[in-house]
Design a protein around this nucleic acid. Structure first.
Lengths: 208, 208
DNA sequence: ATCATTTTGTTCTATTTTTCACAATAACAA
DNA sequence: TTGTTATTGTGAAAAATAGAACAAAATGAT
């Protein structure tokens, strides 16, 4: 089994680049075009494809449409992914209003919050009371949740949604969470991303 | 020079864990405590410290306060980092309202947008016309920008702020940007993060 | 048809990152 | 003291990842 997260991220980037190339009218692509498009090497593009049994044509490159089909299937994009957002604060609400996911086949179907003032069953993406999350997850077959609650509530909320049947959590709380058995947590930590950026800006400035 | 991004991310996590431990009343910590706290190995904690010349006490572990001082200095947290947000849409506005950065010594000092309707010079974080970005960056010595504009505008906006003197960009546009010479770009791509999560949820489900 | 050229697919090599293992040493106990 | 134990710091080993190189195959030109 592939455990290389960067490799999967590259597949996503290839996919995105391929859509752009397709829009521009291209129907086939070579490994070095893709490498240029995502900022990698042609070797690595071919290696990545080889790992997943994707093959092209000697001298003919890769057919963009069939390549996209294969990448989309690997990335689980052959079916609509329904996602919930837990926490309807600034970040959570912004995510619920964000339309960019839809063109990626990702649909935010509901938000949940513990604060009654945030509940709104009639908005485009309804915001429901947190107590209803378990029933909702079960009856709608949701597997993925975005967690955007304050630090203090994060672990508790994570535990709750794991028990509710969620298999993967994208965690925005700036705090490492302990995953329950059978649940994967990926962290998006903006503070850490910024710190990282600041570090590398600092060191490249110093070494110059 | 250290180029290992994950290593720097771990330093941030150690730092955050240390603050939590400090709050709980601890004054010293052992490598295995930290490993537990961030989900790594004790070896790696010590190796990471060793790389940056951080040393503790044989049998005595690490003094939390001096350890934090060293980590904060490495991560550039010994001075307030002023950051601007380019793009005052849903994500950009949410970031400007997000108070979590302040306790990390990161202050969003202004937002910029091309849409006159978004301009608001009197809000807590003023939103200014994009034309003013260069002057603002220069006169306030800003080095870091968060880019939260729509796809189509992203490369152009990135070019503009690089020319304006920005050294590091945290890019939210779901699109790989070409960095101008002397400018570092880190990408935060929520679609890709979700795809990644979905992939790993799928494979762990299948292999079980 | 033959040859030259292009591009894949994969093996082999290099580099990077992580883990292991253990000597060195500080703290404490007897 | 002397011995025992706990923990660091690091060099060496292992594992994971990336890159280079090249044979094989397909295309097109002469």
């Amino acid at each position: 089994m592939i455990t290389n997260k960067n490799c999967i991220i590259r597949l996503s980037r290839y996919k995105n680049a391929l859509y752009r190339l397709q829009t521009l009218g291209f129907v086939k692509v070579f490994s070095d075009n893709l490498a240029d498009a995502v900022g990698g090497t042609a070797s690595q593009v071919r290696k990545d494809f080889s790992i997943f049994g994707i093959s092209g044509n000697k001298k003919g490159g890769y057919q963009i449409d069939s390549l996209l089909e294969k990448l989309n299937s690997i990335l689980g994009k052959d079916q609509l992914q329904k996602v919930i957002v837990v926490g309807a604060g600034h970040i959570g609400s912004a995510l619920m209003r964000y339309r960019g996911f839809e063109k990626e086949g990702i649909k935010i179907v509901a938000g949940f919050d513990i604060d009654p003032a945030k509940i709104n069953r009639s908005s485009p993406v309804p915001v429901l009371p947190l107590e209803e999350v378990k029933a909702f997850v079960k009856s709608n077959g949701i597997r993925i949740a975005i967690l955007a609650v304050p630090d203090i509530a994060a672990q508790q909320a994570a535990d709750l949604i794991c028990v509710s049947g969620i298999k993967g959590i994208l965690n925005f709380a700036p705090l490492g969470l302990k995953a329950a058995e059978g649940c994967i947590i990926n962290n998006v930590n903006l503070e850490i991303e910024l710190e990282n950026l600041i570090y590398f800006v600092n060191v490249t400035e110093k070494t110059k």
